[in-house]
């Protein structure tokens, strides 16, 4: 049987979800943002809640997330997405609300908004993409940059005595009574994508049950900022990021 005989509508097993627009993603080749966007939208599609969901985009590389996610979206000021999401969700407790934030947005300028939204147990889902660097502004040090890791503002490596230590926001919010599900995942291999999607699904299912804040970190790459090829970046991430940011569920409902 030839490929052209297989490529027929009745044999279709996977295509891009309709909850992603046809706009060409603004991300660099190999960037995990695209995959993280897509699996989030796949979860909404599979749950049938795309029409009842309002997403909040951050400042950073994913500032244009609303160009790609084919649902109602609001673009928030830098770091303020959890506050914006709080405003929406408090007024529409039956709708689904999520934020999609990078590490600069969530773990530096938006630390207060993140911690307090989680501590209040706002019934929202926070998707946190952590690539240890400020990608949008050109590869500066992030709160999550690893010790010794080079960036344009730590050109000789992050000196923790001088620049402070990386912040593990995910472990931090797991301490708070307001969070019900806190997980750390990755999206660079098929196996990891499947697990990450499962975690995002669980986060939205718990939001449906009004279980408080659900928080999924995705440890991702930044091949442009790290100055590597996408494949090298994924390997570097496995060797360096995962030991510091171990994958798996950190907090699950009892």
């Amino acid at each position: 049987m030839l490929a052209k005989d297989i490529i027929k509508p009745e044999n279709l097993v996977y295509q891009k979800t309709k909850l992603m627009t046809d706009n060409v993603l603004s991300y660099c080749p190999g960037c995990g943002h695209g995959t993280a966007h897509r699996i989030t939208m796949e979860v909404l599609e599979e749950m049938g809640i795309g029409d009842e969901t309002i997403g909040v985009a951050p400042v950073g590389c994913s500032v244009l997330a609303y160009e790609f996610m084919n649902i109602d979206m609001q673009q928030a000021a830098h770091g303020r997405a959890p506050a914006v999401a709080t405003g929406i969700k408090r007024c529409y407790p039956e709708k689904f609300v999520f934020t999609y934030q990078g590490d600069g947005d969530l773990a530096a300028i938006g630390t207060a908004e993140t911690i307090h939204a989680c501590n209040r147990g706002e019934n929202i889902t926070i998707i946190f993409v952590n690539n240890g660097i400020y990608g949008m502004t050109g590869g500066q040090m992030a709160p999550t940059t690893l010790p010794g890791m080079r960036s344009s503002t730590s050109p000789y490596g992050r000196d923790v005595n001088l620049m402070g230590n990386p912040l593990k926001m995910t472990e931090l919010v797991a301490q708070l009574p307001g969070t019900s599900f806190v997980s750390r995942q990755a999206v660079h291999t098929p196996k990891h994508v499947r697990k990450a999607k499962k975690a995002i699904r669980q986060a939205f299912e718990l939001q449906k049950q009004k279980k408080g804040t659900t928080f999924v970190e995705i440890v991702s790459n930044c091949n442009s900022g790290w100055k590597m090829t996408p494949v090298q970046a994924n390997q570097w991430m496995e060797e360096n990021m995962f030991p510091f940011y171990p994958l798996g569920d950190i907090k699950v409902p009892e």
């Binding site: 996977y14 295509q15 995959t35 098929p190």
Partner: peptide
């Protein structure tokens, strides 16, 4: 499906028979 689900740009469609 492996290629399609890791493709960051979602450009791969998969068929199976």
């Amino acid at each position: 499906n492996n290629c399609a689900i890791v493709c960051p740009d979602g450009v791969i469609t998969v068929y199976r028979a």
